[in-house]
Amino acid sequence: MTMSDLSRVRQPVEQARGLPNAHYTDPDMHAAELKRLFADEWCALCTEADIPRTGDAFPLTFAGEPLLALRGGDGVVRVFYNVCRHRGMILVESPRRIEGALRCPYHSWCYATTGRLVTTPHVGGPGQNTHPGLDRDRLGLIELRSHIWHGIVFVNLSGSAPPFDVRHADLLARWAEFAQPLHHGGPDSRFSLSVETNWKLAVENYCESYHLPWVHPGLNSYSRLEDHYNIESEGFSGQGTEVYRQLRDAEGGTFPDFAGLSPKWDKAAEYIALYPNLLLGVHRDHAFAILLHPDGPGRTREDVHLYYATADTDPDLRAANARQWRTVFEEDIFVVEGMQKGRAAQGFDGGRFAPAMDAPTHRLHAWVATRMAAG
């Protein structure tokens, strides 16, 4: 890859080329993206629904690093490196609830759920649990910057990103009406999809409506291509519709609306990709989040969560809504996997953009190119 390759990506959409193939296939390029695009940004790590109770611990590997989201005894969600400060042992292997202290399985050093180191058995010799050369106050779990918004736990691995509310001020202002409690629908409102594609292709496909008539004929039957509009900003892009249709049960009932929404949302809905790895949708009566977890350059796990305005929504209607969205998201799989296979063509030059329709996708490419060039 040369700097000229990235310069052409950053041209106006009418002249631009897409990112070179290496950004989708090369392991070294993928590692560089994890450093420059993931570590330095606010990334979606998990949801509050993954750790709803005091003491809940949720381990995961993200951008190649072992992390632990933990709800402390004080109720606060924190993100730590999932390693003991003694010899670097992994502390939690699978999601569970911590009763009392978090104990390292290697030498039994124990940590409070707030991260503080509380016991160090035999550290000064048999029967001696302290040592003047070891300061427990300096050896708590290593905490990473985190932030919660829209029910999602974000992490900034490098610690260098601007505050979340500053970095994403435009989106927070755009969706200010949805700054209210979001209630996760529970086990029937979450599912995961494993897709053989690069994470960027999942973002690219999500943020444009151009493919609707051919990939989503059911959705396009009432929310047509001409009913959609593009959304572009620094750090996110997407599309909206002006003809959102609520799901109804056999008696015509719907989910309760979010409180205080302006008339715009009677029919509108918006779908935004918040770079690098979060896909969001908001409607008058529910919202969803798709957290993208890259697994190498050619595989991505999509964790889908649905949210509602109240905690007591009808379970049958919730299940129907989850099925409906799962169908839509599964319809995209052959497209993003097909584009991934296409990146093996050495003669493919990144492709062109349809100027009127692909602006949200071009916005992502330009964002990636700008940050990779700066790195």
Rank of each mutant, 00 (worst) to 15 (best):
E33V: 02
R96F: 12
R78D: 13
L34Q: 05
A69S: 10
A49W: 02
A112P: 09
G88R: 09
A39F: 05
I98S: 02
G73F: 13
Y81D: 08
F58V: 03
R103F: 13
G124F: 10
F62V: 00
G55N: 00
L70M: 13
R36M: 10
I51C: 02
F80H: 07
T54L: 04
G88T: 05
T114F: 15
E48N: 04
V123N: 06
V79G: 03
V118G: 11
R78Y: 07
Y106F: 15
A49H: 01
A57T: 01
A63N: 01
L37N: 05
C43Y: 02
G72L: 15
G100W: 12
P52R: 00
G55K: 00
L117T: 14
P59K: 01
F38I: 05
S94A: 12
F38P: 03
V123H: 12
R53Q: 10
P105S: 14
P105A: 14
G88S: 10
F38D: 04
G125Q: 14
L67V: 00
T47Y: 03
Y111I: 12
L60V: 13
P95R: 10
R96E: 11
H122V: 06
R116W: 06
A112W: 11
A63K: 01
P66R: 11
T113L: 08
R87A: 13
R78A: 15
V92H: 04
E65N: 04
R53P: 04
G124N: 08
F62I: 03
A39G: 02
R71K: 11
H86C: 05
T130D: 07
C84V: 13
T114S: 08
N129R: 14
E33Q: 02
L60I: 11
E93C: 12
L102N: 09
H122Y: 07
V83N: 11
A57V: 02
T47M: 03
A39R: 02
L68K: 10
G88V: 13
G124C: 05
S94R: 09
G64Q: 05
D74H: 10
S108M: 11
C84G: 13
G100I: 14
P52L: 00
W109L: 06
C84S: 06
C43G: 00
G124I: 10
E41C: 14
P126H: 14
P121M: 07
A112G: 15
L67M: 01
E48K: 02
L117G: 15
S94N: 14
F58Q: 04
L37I: 05
A63P: 00
V77C: 12
W109R: 06
F58W: 06
R71A: 09
N82W: 11
A101W: 15
D50K: 01
A49F: 02
G55P: 02
G125M: 15
G72C: 13
A112K: 07
E99D: 08
I90W: 06
D56N: 00
D74E: 10
F58P: 02
H86P: 13
G73P: 07
G100P: 14
T130R: 08
T47Q: 03
G72E: 08
G127F: 03
A57E: 02
E93F: 11
P126I: 09
C43L: 03
G115P: 04
D40V: 08
G100L: 10
T114H: 12
C46N: 01
E48G: 04
P105D: 11
R78Q: 07
S108P: 08
F80M: 09
V92A: 03
D50M: 01
